[in-house]
Amino acid sequence: MSDVDLPPIEIEVPAELGSLGDLRAIVVGFARRVGFRDQFDVEVVASELVTNAIVHAGTAPIVTLTQVGHRRMEIAVADEDPRSPGPVDPYENGTRGHGLAIVATLSRTWGVRREGGSGKTVWAEVEEQRPLRLVDGCGPGAQAARPLGPRADPLRRA
């Protein structure tokens, strides 16, 4: 857990999808230092943003990780392609087109910044979510899931 503001870190990622494993390890380490107990969301968001940059821009993206609060961080991916990312119907493209929908679902907010030059930065702010538990079973008539409290037993029914 971190109560200290961490300085941002910048990583140049080779323009090869095989380099994503090393990037994910760096992102997970930074997220732990920011206080994330579960790093899944930041790992997936970083992977999706960098994959998009490599596939669509074809250049080595620059990833910047910035702490924006306790258990909250920004993942920014700069590339040299001036085109903004846009929604793609994944059902028309087979297995492609889910990336930005995944980023939008897992992040608090996301967007695109133009910072001079010919490229762009696609960023997402991710905040660790409290885990959910089912309250009254599942199926017809079930109540909605509720966030777990800090000392709640996930196996105990409310």
Results as ranks from 00 to 15, higher is better:
1 M>G: 14
2 S>R: 14
4 V>N: 12
4 V>M: 09
4 V>P: 00
5 D>T: 12
5 D>S: 09
6 L>R: 12
7 P>K: 08
9 I>Y: 02
11 I>F: 06
12 E>W: 00
14 P>I: 08
16 E>L: 07
16 E>C: 01
16 E>G: 01
18 G>Y: 04
18 G>W: 06
18 G>E: 11
23 L>R: 02
23 L>H: 11
25 A>Q: 12
26 I>S: 11
26 I>P: 03
27 V>R: 01
29 G>Q: 02
32 R>V: 09
32 R>G: 04
32 R>M: 02
36 F>C: 09
38 D>V: 15
39 Q>S: 14
40 F>D: 07
40 F>S: 10
41 D>S: 15
43 E>G: 14
45 V>Y: 06
46 A>V: 07
47 S>Y: 13
49 L>I: 10
50 V>F: 11
50 V>I: 09
51 T>A: 13
52 N>W: 08
52 N>T: 00
53 A>Q: 10
54 I>V: 10
54 I>R: 11
56 H>C: 05
57 A>Q: 05
58 G>L: 01
58 G>S: 07
58 G>K: 10
59 T>D: 15
59 T>F: 10
60 A>H: 02
63 V>F: 04
63 V>H: 07
66 T>P: 08
70 H>I: 09
70 H>N: 11
74 E>T: 11
76 A>Y: 10
77 V>D: 13
78 A>E: 14
79 D>A: 05
80 E>W: 00
82 P>Y: 14
83 R>G: 08
83 R>H: 15
84 S>N: 10
88 V>S: 05
89 D>M: 04
90 P>N: 01
91 Y>G: 00
92 E>H: 09
92 E>Q: 11
95 T>V: 14
95 T>C: 02
97 G>E: 00
97 G>V: 07
98 H>A: 03
99 G>W: 01
99 G>C: 09
99 G>E: 07
99 G>D: 03
101 A>K: 06
103 V>C: 01
104 A>Q: 07
107 S>G: 03
110 W>S: 14
111 G>L: 03
112 V>A: 05
113 R>N: 13
114 R>D: 13
115 E>H: 05
115 E>Y: 02
116 G>S: 06
118 S>K: 10
118 S>N: 12
119 G>K: 03
120 K>C: 08
120 K>R: 15
122 V>F: 15
122 V>Q: 05
124 A>I: 08
126 V>L: 08
129 Q>K: 02
129 Q>P: 00
129 Q>I: 01
130 R>P: 00
131 P>L: 00
131 P>H: 01
133 R>P: 00
134 L>N: 08
135 V>Y: 05
138 C>G: 13
138 C>M: 05
140 P>K: 04
142 A>I: 03
142 A>Q: 01
142 A>C: 04
144 A>N: 08
146 R>Q: 05
146 R>T: 08
148 L>Y: 06
150 P>E: 15
150 P>T: 07
152 A>W: 03
153 D>C: 05
155 L>G: 13
155 L>T: 11
156 R>N: 03
156 R>V: 11
158 A>P: 15
158 A>D: 09
